[in-house]
């Protein structure tokens, strides 16, 4: 199976890129995208998850932060995340064009020129880091800059097309926002913020590999060495189960370490059991429609799982009696 990693994917990718660009390249190098196209470049759905987890980091951090400063930090983190998305779409336009899930994005669809996406992403990245550093603090700005660098250069440009461990290591980029939020509010990095980082870090592989299981054809066509393409579905199912077995106790650790209340303990326990159940189902069902259904269920539930964990942490921090529940 590892031979797939070295397969020559250049032709289909080049054909797709040519098709996308020949159909839409403007004479003046500009594509005149609408405002909605530029908003799409920011990956609003990913951005919403980043905002939510960063908010939890801000709220859980020790000490008091002025609401206006908290809002500014959240805005900068959101813009930084969006800028990363725009730079990701600029670099990945060729593989986005051949994947059904991404071919309607503004760059491969020809509504925005690659150069425009690059300029947009760079402007927002620099702006977000500068404003965060000037108006909030230097540590959070440095962490945000590193997050953008990690996502765009380490993950998008290097790991994504090179190793099946791409989303394992690259998952760190998605795990940084609560730590950035924590640093913005407290000026430091605490143990709880590291735990929040680790929860998202270990959540990412089962989440993305579940998606990759039923979209492996897309990834194979695009030449992205996702685990199901390189190591096969069986190994992917085994890895999903292993990562889930690490994730669930890790997600419960804030309760056992006294950093979260009973409500969090109960929710993380029940939802964690759901994750293990669905991961085990993915491991058992290996053929046909039931296998795809199990992967889809795990992918969908993993989003709810992460949302529940962070929502309870948020409620416990905001509601006075929350931690006593």
């Amino acid at each position: 199976m590892t031979d797939l990693a070295s397969r020559d994917y250049d032709m289909p990718r080049q054909e797709a890129l040519n098709a996308a660009l020949n159909g839409a390249r403007a004479v003046d190098g500009l594509h005149h995208g609408s405002v909605a196209d530029y908003i799409a470049l920011l990956k609003p759905r990913v951005m919403s998850l980043v905002i939510f987890t960063a908010l939890v980091g801000i709220v859980r951090a020790p000490g008091a932060v002025h609401p206006v400063i908290a809002f500014t930090a959240l805005l900068c983190i959101a813009i930084g995340a969006g800028a990363s998305g725009a730079l990701n779409m600029w670099w990945d336009a060729d593989i986005d064009a051949v994947m059904s899930r991404t071919r309607r994005r503004p760059v491969p669809a020809g509504r925005i020129a690659p150069g425009e996406a690059l300029a947009f992403g760079m402007t927002l990245s620099i702006g977000a880091v500068l404003v965060l550093g000037l108006l909030v603090n230097e540590l959070s700005a440095a962490l945000l800059a590193f997050t953008i660098f990690f996502y765009v250069v380490i993950y998008t440009m290097w790991l994504k097309r090179w190793t099946p461990q791409n989303i394992v290591i690259g998952g760190a980029a998605g795990a940084f926002p609560p730590m950035v939020g924590w640093a913005a509010a407290s000026g430091g990095i605490g143990l709880e913020s590291v735990l929040l980082f680790l929860i998202i870090f270990f959540w990412t592989p089962p989440h993305f590999w579940a998606l990759a299981l039923y979209k492996s054809g897309d990834y194979e066509r695009a030449g992205v060495p996702m685990l199901p393409v390189v190591a096969g579905p069986s190994e992917t199912r085994r890895q999903i189960l292993l990562y889930t077995l690490v994730l669930v106790p890790l997600a419960m650790s804030p309760f056992f370490l006294g950093m979260a209340g009973v409500a969090y303990g109960i929710v993380s326990g029940i939802a964690g059991a759901g994750m293990v159940l669905l991961a085990a189902r993915v491991y058992r069902r290996r053929e046909g429609a039931p296998a795809e259904k199990a992967a889809r269920q795990l992918f969908g539930f993993s989003i709810i799982y992460l949302f529940l964990l962070f929502a309870v942490l948020l409620v416990e921090a905001v509601v006075p009696f929350g931690s006593g529940l």
């Binding site: 020949n22 159909g23 839409a24 390249r25 403007a26 004479v27 003046d28 500009l30 594509h31 005149h32």
Partner: peptide, 21 residues
Amino acid sequence: VERGATATGAAAAGGAGRKMA
């Protein structure tokens, strides 16, 4: 040249193609 026009001819013609597409 109309902005946003397709560039099949323009790309082939290089800089001069900007006014031919």
